[in-house]
Amino acid sequence: MEHKLNFKQYSEALKENKLLGLKCKQCGDITVPPKIACGKCYGTDLDIVELSGKGKIQTFTTVFVPPEGREDECPYVIVLVELDEGPWIMGNLTGIDPNKVNMEIMGKSVKMGHAVFPGDKFSAGEEARPVFSLGT
């Protein structure tokens, strides 16, 4: 079966600040990041939709001990964001001092930009990810 939207296409769109998801023709639910079947009803008849990239922070952490190869990025903030359209997505948070961030940011509104992880010897090449900032 063909993929309606695969990782490569999703990642390339993110590089243009476009967050792509899949809308199920059967149940209307939105799946993002993409899967080959709807995350809710497992239907495979899906349409590509562009999402707002807006949502609210559900939780966060600041990473002080990085994996090999990411030492220069440290410390950095990771957030799980609930998008206005419903799904959760992982991204980084920018525009805030990583040393001062605390639970008060949970529930705050954010909008999406992006950054590219250039890849390392273990990864399958370049991978884009959402980078959020506070505000609407």
Binding site: F60, T61, V63, P66, I78, I89, F117, E127, A128
Partner: peptide
């Protein structure tokens, strides 16, 4: 694909 590019680590998961 959808987590490691953000720099997630194992303690990071449980910190979230």
């Amino acid at each position: 694909r959808y987590e490691y590019p953000c720099g997630i680590t194992f303690p990071g998961v449980f910190a979230l």
